[in-house]
Design a protein around this nucleic acid. Structure first.
Lengths: 216, 216
DNA sequence: AAGTAGTGAGTGAGTGTTCACTCACTTTCA
DNA sequence: TGAAAGTGAGTGAACACTCACTCACTACTT
């Protein structure tokens, strides 16, 4: 359970696997991710990016025509590579269990996702912020994220329903309730900076979901 | 239930009630709220604000030393005046009911807050965005919002607990679960721009909360 | 009542700075 | 040796913010 899969490390792996991208371009992307996560997209200048990447400002613009293009180039692999990989990790964990109870499922899900998001709160903020402000990015992310959830989470939900462990609600509704409950907890913990409370509270979360999703 | 209390109208009332603030300064605040809501704080220039307010750019800076000060001056009454007023509205609605069931409570809460947030999504985005990015603002908002929730929501929760309608969880935990479930639904609906699905889904939300919060 | 001084909101051209972005040029490497 | 990668001084636009000034209005003086 002590996973070291952070967005940053997985992102670095994805970059390293691309042979067509020169080293300095990878440094530009890595520096952008770090700076956007730390101070936000609008508050980061291309000069800062170049400095952090140890590269001239012109290098930033060789591959990406505008600063917006650079953001898009960051978010695309984040959604198309990083997120699916982490989702598959969870799915494979659950699939291995011979008999799956609702409680087992919830425990695995909450533990898995809470840890992950906790480690990647800064990067997740980029997504939240920019999705709120930019219609185009919002569409891009949603279109790419939807099939990932459908492929990895929905089959598990179906399996639970078949076993009589889950109420017969639409899979998208169940996903929303799960994600919402977990995400809210994370957001609250991060806004308050109150990590102790945060950890203590997870059994309560699981219990709440357990009751709310139990069949009649 | 067909409330016309939007943030904008309540905000205008609050401004109108302040006799010490000159008319043009009120125009500056109103224009800022509209522009920040439409395009975000970072993407709005003081020149745009002055133009929209029908005022010289210097006027913007007479009362507010920096653009950040202007944002703070906007958010302060939003949290200290507008939010409490809307909270009290809900509380008084519930208090009037002679016998309060969990289901009644949830129905009132969900209907009340869903309508309100739906009408004020654009303004709410300012808060979400800036709270994510700015530590100081985050603290300011949380410190002011907490007592409002404690005074208006917590007594109702206590009443429900006394009537054996609610599980014996911490009030803050219950509040988190309620707010989280409702907010997630709103966010999802707004991100997808899918209003029909959104309305159809509220009974499911109420049912989920009903089961999750029912005593043993 | 007429003149004078004081006050503070409002003005908008102006300031220095920073920004995203360009391009003529050099370096790297297949 | 040619093409791709990298460079960094340079550019115009846009930015947040300033300041010397006007003007309407009030209050005090004669």
């Amino acid at each position: 359970m002590a996973k070291n899969t952070t967005i940053k490390t997985v992102f670095d792996q994805v970059l390293a696997a691309d042979p067509n991208l020169p080293a300095k371009q990878k440094q530009v992307l890595a520096a952008s991710l770090a700076l956007f996560a730390a101070q936000g997209f609008a508050n980061t200048s291309t000069k800062q990016i170049a400095a952090k990447a140890g590269v001239a400002e012109g290098t930033v613009y060789r591959r990406y025509k505008t600063k917006d293009d650079l953001l898009a180039a960051l978010i695309k692999p984040l959604v198309s590579e990083v997120m699916p990989r982490l989702m598959r990790e969870f799915a494979s964990q659950v699939v291995r269990m011979p008999t799956l109870t609702r409680h087992q499922f919830l425990t695995t899900l909450v533990a898995n996702r809470v840890d992950f998001l906790q480690d990647n709160w800064r990067e997740a903020k980029i997504l939240i912020n920019e999705m709120l402000m930019r219609e185009d990015l919002r569409q891009q992310v949603l279109v790419q994220a939807a099939p990932v959830i459908e492929k990895n989470l929905f089959p598990v939900l179906d399996r639970l329903k078949d076993a009589g462990q889950l109420r017969d609600l639409g899979n998208d509704v169940i996903a929303q309730l799960l994600i919402g409950t977990i995400l809210t907890n994370l957001v609250r913990a991060n806004l308050q900076g109150d990590l102790h409370q945060f950890i203590v509270r997870t059994p309560v979360l699981i219990d709440f979901l357990d009751r709310g999703l139990a069949p009649d």
